[in-house]
Design a protein around this nucleic acid. Structure first.
Length: 549
RNA sequence: GUUCCCAUCGUCUAGAGGCCUAGGACACCAGGUUUUCAUCCUGGUAACAGGGGUUCGAAUCCCCUUGGGAAUACCA
């Protein structure tokens, strides 16, 4: 059975990059009928908080990302981590660093294994010869090989990488004589902790090897061993560092597939050795592309906008966010975009995940959200709208029944619930342009005109005259008891002004709402009523005739 | 500095050597929206980063360049 895990560290707010990783892990687990485990990596006690954990859990629940088994807290595993480090020491896969002042507590450092020709993930790639700077010493210690060489730009580059990167290392003096052969002295370095320093060396030669693995998303990836360093696994205070804890826990939790962000590929090369040394088969790896923000930069926890909870706060629907995020770096391969969980699970596969980073686009998210909004039950939508209007500070001020009517009219064209602020033109007449003297001092405007729409709608004088006639007709009209009555007046006015049917719609809409899109015009007028309809037209005429636009 | 990764419209993407005059979605622009009325409709602009190969044929394979990103911690 496949076992995957989502392993966030609760040191801040979960951002969309994190949660997108969780989504892919979850999708993979559900698709393959495996397990999706949640592990909280709280070993950084300074920065981990209970609050962050609670918020994370809340976000996951909101998005419907359910996990199997109990939550696994990494902090509960410290003994296991220390044991593992101890075992590595015993098996000489780890060591204490050489330091002058030996009274201080020492960390434990993991050694990239010297003897790794039997490792399935290590291979020889060729022989290397480098001209070293003779005026700089070549040092060989437990920690690795240190020397300096001249790069292509003739700059001195200092090199210090793990011992394991230098199998068959040979050092040559200025007269090309062999001064040192590492294979003859390796036990002295490894076991007796002996150091070698050579001055005046001219050339260094060794066999280059590399670690490699097959990434389920990115294909075969590799890294030369002479670009890797030994690394600390247990701090001098006895606490485990990320690499150790992470790998130990994956072993404890029997994780089979590690699906995580791109920023971990480099760690993978280290972890492969750790798994090996701990005698555990290397899991399958899949590294997902990062999500970048509007300016094309990677999201960090500092990006306030990216906190998942904020999307909830702003009124996004969880299914919409989930759906949108799943489409960042993955696609089902056909033209489907809006998909149910079931469809996504069925279509999901790591082989279809891209390896290029994806930019987060709020506008498209909003559109996706609108698709989900339209599917909401009327009552659920109404509840959301009421809450939102209250939150915006005007919900209590309006008639409940009218509000309900408006909500039903606007439901299918609401992309995100905060757009209920656009409905204010149904209720209020005050705005910079529409100063109808009502007491209305809310911070946001009720309905400023769309300038472009205004110009377009009244480009021709006919329309100015026509809406004036319409106002006259409405004032005269006895029967105005349903939207159809308004509709009839619109049609009559069109005839009267020799306009073809429907031609007057746009101008009237702009006059009444300030915008080119909205609910059905007659419905809108019916809700506004005779008085306000006339008053708005009157006001607009004043504006136009005084050439304010 | 070193190592590694990435590159199709503004954005998300389709693309497995010939179905590509490069498809879809969002955004944008232009029109239209009386009827049975909205997840409004119709149309349009817009991309294979550049240069070399390989091949009868390249968005697709190889190399180089450029540009972006990551890692290089006693953070995770």
């Amino acid at each position: 059975m496949n076992i995957v895990r989502f392993a966030p560290s609760p040191t801040g707010n979960v951002h969309i990059g994190n949660i997108r990783t969780a989504i892919f892990d979850w999708l993979f687990a559900r698709k393959t009928k495996g397990k999706f485990l949640l592990r909280i990596e709280d070993t950084d006690k300074e920065r981990s908080t209970r609050e962050a954990i609670d918020r994370l859990l809340e976000c996951m629940e909101w998005l419907g990302i359910d996990y199997d088994d109990d939550i696994f807290y990494q902090s509960s595993q410290e003994d296991a981590h220390r044991d593992a480090a101890k075992r590595m020491m015993e098996e000489q896969n780890a060591y204490y660093p050489n330091v002058e002042n030996s009274d201080l507590p020492k960390p434990i450092i993991f050694r990239i294994p010297w003897n790794s020709e039997s490792y399935q993930n290590v291979r020889i790639v060729g022989n290397v010869e480098l001209n070293v700077c003779a005026d700089k010493p070549v040092e060989i210690t437990q920690g690795g090989v240190k020397f300096s060489y001249l790069n292509e730009k003739n700059k001195v580059v200092e090199n210090f990488f793990a011992l394991a990167g230098y199998r068959k290392l040979r050092l040559f003096g200025s007269d090309d004589t062999l001064v040192f052969e590492i294979e003859n002295h390796i036990d002295e370095v490894l076991k007796d902790n002996k150091n070698f320093t050579f001055n005046g060396c001219k050339k260094i030669a060794y066999e280059r090897r590399e670690v490699f693995y097959n990434d389920m998303i990115k294909g075969e990836l590799s890294k030369p061993l002479d670009s890797m360093k030994d690394f600390v696994i247990l701090r001098s205070d006895g606490t485990p560092v990320f690499h150790l804890a992470n790998v130990c826990d994956d072993i404890t939790q029997k994780v089979t597939h590690i699906i995580r962000g791109d920023d971990h590929v480099e760690n993978t090369y280290k972890h492969i050795f750790l798994f090996d040394v701990l005698h555990y088969p290397i899991p399958k790896y899949a590294h997902m592309p990062m999500i970048v923000n509007q300016s094309g930069k990677p999201y960090s926890k500092r990006d306030g906008d990216a906190f998942v909870g904020d999307f909830k706060e702003k009124g996004y629907l969880p299914d919409a966010l989930f759906n949108y995020l799943s489409l960042l770096g993955w696609s089902p391969g056909d033209n489907r975009e809006k998909m149910s969980r079931k469809e996504m699970i069925e279509a999901f596969g790591l082989d279809r995940v891209k390896s290029a980073p994806a930019q987060f686009d709020v506008v498209k998210l909003q559109n996706m959200n609108g698709l989900y909004m339209a599917e909401l039950e009327d009552s659920a939508f109404l509840d959301m709208a009421r809450r939102e209007a209250s939150k915006q500070g005007w919900g209590e001020a309006v008639d409940k029944e009218v509000f309900e009517k408006v909500a039903m009219l606007m439901k299918t064209r609401t992309k995100i619930i905060s757009q209920v602020s656009d409905w204010k033109y149904f209720f209020f007449d005050n705005s910079p342009l529409f100063d109808m003297s009502t007491e209305y001092n809310l911070s946001s405007k009720s309905f400023p005109y769309d300038d472009k729409a205004l110009k377009k709608a009244f480009k021709e004088e006919t329309f100015i005259k026509a809406i004036a006639s319409f106002r006259d007709n409405i004032e005269k009209q006895q029967q105005l008891e349903c939207p159809a009555d308004f509709e009839a007046v619109i049609r009559d006015t069109e005839k009267q002004c020799s306009l073809s049917e429907g031609k007057l719609n746009q101008s009237l809409r702009v006059a009444l709402t300030g915008s080119t899109s909205g609910a059905n015009l007659a419905d809108t007028m019916f809700i506004l009523g005779r008085e306000r309809t006339c008053a708005r037209i009157e006001k607009l005429l004043t504006i136009i005739l005084s050439s304010k636009f």
